[in-house]
């Protein structure tokens, strides 16, 4: 694994992956949007509002996926002092926060016509809101120290503590009474959803994943460059103080 710890190797790999990840994101989101808005039927109960599902559900998956990725990167950073892991955890946080925010907003826009309310303080919605706060807390903490090392460490610990929320979100619809419906795609006995709706759902999910990879590469590059700049500046200050 430490073979990938080298920033130079990451940058080389990123250069190869970037055209593919951005290409896959554009194509699958384009196709996904077409199927979601035009190429799929309206639901027999929910009418056209079912189209909100094609952003809401993949956004929710990404909110959870990014958090788990952030926690895994944080664990790698704390345990193995993996120098890139901190940067990747930090790069994932805003993407996860964006998807969690979109999940909440689109859920609210779906809830109003179907449940008759924008918001209820039930288990699924509240635990998802906590997920958003965990992301925001992570992002505030990681930048709160003059020494980036300390910020990374504190934020990594927060990310790992917050991971307890992930299974709570996943099973909240089974553990508590809630307005939110239980899982219909990932469940025992196969998905309870028609292929005409599964296609846009999976295309959007694939597009969001590819989007995450693309943004992760861009933010990873920015972090690596910022780190090199810090090293050069430190060396300059050091040289200046020696009177060179």
């Amino acid at each position: 694994m430490h073979r990938f710890a080298n920033p130079a190797r990451f940058l080389r790999l990123a250069k190869v992956i970037l055209p593919y990840s951005s290409g896959i994101a554009v194509v699958s989101l384009g196709l996904g949007l077409w199927f979601a808005l035009l190429g799929s039927p309206a639901d027999y109960q929910q009418g056209e509002t079912v189209r909100i599902m094609y952003v809401h559900v993949p956004a929710a998956w990404m909110g959870l996926f990014c958090y788990v990725a952030m926690a895994v990167f944080s664990a790698m950073a704390l345990i193995w002092k993996h120098p890139l892991a901190d940067l990747l955890a930090k790069a994932t946080a805003p993407v996860g926060a964006a998807f969690t925010f979109l999940c909440l907003v689109t859920g609210s826009l779906w809830g109003k016509p179907m449940w008759g309310t924008w918001w209820v303080w039930d288990a699924r919605l509240t635990s998802m809101l906590i997920l958003l706060f965990l992301y925001l807390g992570y992002m505030a903490l990681v930048n709160a120290f003059d020494d980036p090392e300390r910020g990374h460490k504190a934020a990594a610990i927060l990310a790992l503590v917050g991971v307890v929320n992930v299974p709570i979100i996943k099973w909240s619809v089974d553990w508590w009474n809630t307005l939110h419906q239980p899982a219909s795609v990932v469940k025992m006995g196969g998905p309870a959803i028609d292929a005409s709706m599964m296609v846009p759902l999976l295309l959007m999910a694939l597009g969001f994943k590819a989007y995450w990879v693309t943004v992760l590469i861009l933010r990873g590059r920015a972090e690596i460059a910022a780190q090199k700049i810090r090293v050069i500046r430190m060396a300059q200050i050091h040289a200046a103080s020696r009177g060179e």
Binding site: E48, I52, A98, V105, P113, Y211
Partner: peptide, 23 residues
């Protein structure tokens, strides 16, 4: 959108806006 335009389109609009902004 079968009378739900005020819910469906903002959901897509906000999603596109946020994702493009982050990118």
């Amino acid at each position: 959108m079968g009378g739900y335009a005020g819910f469906v389109w903002p959901a897509y609009g906000i999603s596109i806006l946020v994702l493009v902004a982050v990118l």
